[in-house]
Design a protein around this nucleic acid. Structure first.
Length: 280
DNA sequence: AACATAGGCAACCGCTCCGTT
DNA sequence: GAACGGAGCGGTTGCCTATGT
């Protein structure tokens, strides 16, 4: 408490990560493994704070991250887990292979909580909302929307009004799709390739971009993914998805657990002990 | 075509937890 | 037991794109 934020040091990069930074971070972790986040940026040659590096790795660069649409099964599981655990996103993410807490949190805030409200369910308590509560909720949402619009309006005003200091131009890369659920050992997990592509500033040239080639030792399925939309082969993606969900039956197993518990929903002790088990 | 609004997501911030000294 | 520091978590913000007017 009272500690200075680790990102307050001047001269550190902030905002979206560049392909070069991604490469440096991934290469470093590939060689040395995760951990020691505070000292990592210096050793890896990054002008970022350790927290930023950790976040980038955990939410974006890890090879076992699954990107792409949340399936209806996953949605259902998230809702049920949220009912049990509340906003403990990391615990919820821990039960969804390849999903990150940040992704689930965002998905909850942007999709699921709205859907529950529309269905007349309080997304916090998972209980039915009364008519009065529903209308109050609608008023609240209108207000929060207005606040959000103000932020957008400020941004757009700055964008269109040359008298206002323009915000720095930032490059948002296309979302990569990384689909693996198997553990990849350090140093053998992935290889880097060089890709020719536009770098987002209108220039076209050769930039080093992380592009990982995975190999599942069990079934021999190769898989190429990276920061470029055209890298991922759709059929491979589907194939991997099916391996994740039909091969391991992770979600089905969880569903069975849930169904068992929900059958005895009155049995609070059992429910509690299940929630307890998730904490391990 | 230009502008306004709405929605989505990556990244940041501040706090807490927990191991070490 | 107190102080310290690394790591992790959840809430919030900033910026972008899509859609509407």
């Amino acid at each position: 408490m009272g500690r200075a934020p680790c990102c307050s040091k001047v001269g550190l990069h902030r905002g979206p990560w560049t392909p070069r930074e991604d490469t440096l971070l991934t290469k470093y972790i590939q060689a040395h493994g995760e951990g020691h986040w505070r000292s990592l940026p210096k050793k890896a040659g990054l002008l970022r704070c350790g927290k930023s590096c950790r976040l980038r790795w955990m939410n974006y660069l890890r090879p076992d991250i699954k990107r792409g649409n949340i399936t209806p099964d996953e949605e259902d599981l998230i809702i049920r887990l949220h009912a049990l655990l509340g906003n403990r996103w990391s615990l919820i993410a821990g039960r969804l292979p390849g999903r990150t807490d940040n992704e689930i949190k965002n998905y909850w805030n942007t999709h699921l909580s709205k859907r529950l409200r529309n269905q007349g369910t309080d997304p916090k308590t998972h209980r039915k909302l009364s008519d009065e509560a529903v209308s109050q909720d609608a008023r609240k949402r209108r207000n929060s929307k207005n606040n959000n619009h103000r932020r957008s309006q400020n941004y757009n005003r700055n964008k269109t009004n040359p008298s206002v200091e323009p915000l720095k131009h930032q490059v948002h890369l296309p979302k990569p799709i990384r689909v693996t659920s198997f553990v990849v050992p350090i140093n053998e997990s992935f290889k880097f390739n060089n890709l020719s592509h536009g770098d987002g500033d209108g220039e076209v040239g050769t930039t080093e971009v992380p592009c990982y080639s995975f190999k599942d030792s069990d079934n021999g399925a190769g898989f190429l993914v990276g920061d470029n939309d055209d890298i991922v082969n759709g059929s491979d993606f589907d194939y991997q998805m099916s391996q994740v969900f039909t091969g391991e039956n992770t979600l089905e197993k969880l569903y069975e657990e849930y169904l068992q518990i929900l059958k005895n929903e009155d049995d609070q002790v059992q429910l509690d002990s299940f929630a307890e088990s998730l904490l391990i």
